[in-house]
């Protein structure tokens, strides 16, 4: 489903060269949940940005269902994200001027879905993440955990083939983090969505079918999932 081949990314800070990813290769099957473990600054977020087409690699390729992401022009990559990819961020990144319901509805509206089916999907998802009835509330009135639940609902709204989660529990307390990660992986499995979960926390990675470790720009299977 997702194939990453020899991916490399280098950042320059003045004349200093910083290799973030170097010849990175791995594959993820359809419906699989994979956790990518790595320390801060190991290039986890860079990798997600490259997979989603937000950033361009220096070399190598990313294929999503056989489509080479970086062979697409920028507008096509944007549409690929809109149709096939969902995002869950560490800082939730909900849109503060939209209600919870509207936040979840936004990806569907962008895809041109009709109002009735959008509303039904929003209600289902919010109920599934435990926020049923909170549609008219604005994000700032919710707790951190509730905001992340809303973000998960938004990420899954358009039934993406691939869900990218970047430290989804990094901003939550331990208890809430545990519940959120369970919810995320359960929903991804229910929806048949491939989940790539980036984290530095081993307990969080335990929900995955497979755990990879990112270190020194290379990825390797973790010894203990």
């Amino acid at each position: 489903m997702l194939a990453v081949e020899n991916l490399a990314k280098v950042y320059w800070s003045g004349s200093t060269r910083q290799v973030v990813l170097e010849g990175l290769t791995f594959r993820i099957r359809q419906g699989e949940t994979v956790a990518l473990l790595g320390a801060s600054g190991s290039g986890k977020t860079t990798l997600l940005n490259l997979i989603s087409g937000i950033d361009n690699p220096d070399s190598g390729s990313v294929s999503l269902d056989g489509v080479k992401v970086h062979a697409l022009a920028e507008p096509e990559r944007t549409l690929l994200r809109r149709r096939r990819i969902g995002f869950v961020f560490q800082f939730f990144n909900l849109i503060h001027t939209l209600t919870v319901g509207e936040n979840v509805a936004l990806p569907l509206e962008l895809l041109g879905c009709d109002h009735a089916s959008t509303q039904a999907r929003v209600a289902d998802l919010l109920a599934a993440v435990g926020l049923g009835g909170l549609e008219p509330r604005f994000p700032e009135t919710l707790s951190g955990g509730e905001q992340q639940r809303a973000a998960i609902a938004r990420a899954l709204a358009h039934r993406p083939a691939l869900l990218l989660a970047d430290e989804p529990t990094g901003n939550l307390d331990e208890d809430t983090a545990g519940r959120i990660i369970e919810l995320l992986s359960d929903l991804a499995r229910q929806e048949g969505t491939t989940l790539l979960l980036v984290t530095h926390s081993l307990p969080v990675a335990r929900v995955a079918d497979r755990v990879l470790r990112l270190s020194h720009g290379q990825v390797a299977p973790a010894e203990e999932p």
Binding site: I54, L79, R82, I85
Partner: peptide, 9 residues
């Protein structure tokens, strides 16, 4: 954020 979820320029 909007660009990340697929809003075009």
């Amino acid at each position: 954020r909007l660009r990340a979820i697929g809003v075009t320029p």
